[in-house]
């Protein structure tokens, strides 16, 4: 019986691992051929023509994700410090629970939220609205990672610092946070990677655009949005560009994830 079941389970492992290789394989086969310097430096050409690049989408993703991180990361880290420093307080319990709820909220719902708050108020789509949605998604992720990593810092370190007469804020910033910082940085990278691939909350906030733009108050392109538009569009050339853009996206996301996992495992002997 054991032997049969092990056989069944090994089959399950193969079936489970297969999609990753199939997906990566297709991305490389279909996406790598159109990667060139001009792919990164050009903006789109009119539909139907050959050539064209994704510069506008790369710039857009950097700006939108960058602005989201600017808000989401510090807020998330500070909230994470709070829930570890004041572990037993009622606010900490509530915040932890709410963060889990927000973590489980579909990103499209967060997109609707950003739409009602930013787009409706401003009266038009904008990159800012997209960033707002991504920041909301980012906050609970960063908070929970920060909390987990701060909890790994030995309590003796904190006690030693307090015994030396360090004030609480210096203890938690220069001793506890500093000890956990490498782990937190990788956790933040992981959430940036996840956010960078989000499409749904950008659909009706940042909207997408065919032009290179630095104006965050206007609609803006982003890599995942571009993959979506081009994949569902009617032109062969668009499909080709969608594959290449997806390859770029996946390389960024996977490299960040692998680095984050390897580094945290080396430092803390476990995954986060």
């Amino acid at each position: 019986m054991s032997r049969i079941m092990v056989g069944v389970m090994i089959t399950a492992v193969i079936v489970a691992v297969l999609p990753l290789f199939l997906i990566l394989g297709s991305l490389i086969v279909k996406g790598a051929s159109s990667l060139s310097i001009s792919f990164f430096t050009n903006t789109p050409v009119p539909a139907g023509e050959d050539g064209g690049g994704v510069r506008h989408a790369i710039v857009g993703t950097l700006l939108i994700v960058g602005m989201a991180s600017l808000v989401g990361v510090p807020l998330g880290i500070a909230a994470g410090i709070y829930t570890t420093e004041f572990k037993g307080s009622r606010l900490a319990t509530i915040t932890r629970f709410v963060a889990d709820v927000l973590n489980g909220t579909p990103s499209i719902v967060v997109g609707v939220f950003a739409w009602t708050v930013v787009v409706v108020t401003q009266g038009h789509f904008s990159a800012l609205a997209g960033s707002a949605a991504l920041a909301v998604l980012m906050l609970p992720m960063v908070m929970r990672t920060t909390e987990e990593l701060l909890n790994l810092v030995p309590i003796t370190l904190r006690e030693a610092a307090l015994a030396l007469g360090y004030s609480r804020w210096r203890t938690s910033l220069t001793i506890v946070l500093r000890t956990a910082l490498p782990g937190i940085v990788t956790g933040v990278l992981l959430s940036v990677a996840r956010i960078a691939g989000e499409t749904a909350p950008l659909l009706f906030t940042a909207l997408g655009s065919q032009f290179l733009s630095y104006n965050v108050d206007r609609p803006m392109a982003a890599l995942p949005l571009m993959v979506y538009t081009y994949a569902t569009g009617p032109f062969e050339e668009w499909h080709r560009l969608a594959w290449s853009a997806a390859l770029v996206l996946i390389v960024v996301v996977l490299v960040l994830s692998v680095i984050a996992r390897v580094v945290t495992r080396q430092r803390f002997g476990r995954n986060v």
Binding site: L22, S26, R194, G197, A242, I250, V253, L254, V258
Partner: peptide, 25 residues
């Protein structure tokens, strides 16, 4: 560890890439 990591990497792939792969492959 390696198998768990490979499977967890599947979770890191953006949804839109799954969609693209789904449509064309």
């Amino acid at each position: 560890q390696p198998i768990a990591m490979v499977i967890e990497l599947l979770a890191a792939i953006p949804s839109v890439v799954y969609g693209l792969w789904g449509i064309f492959v």
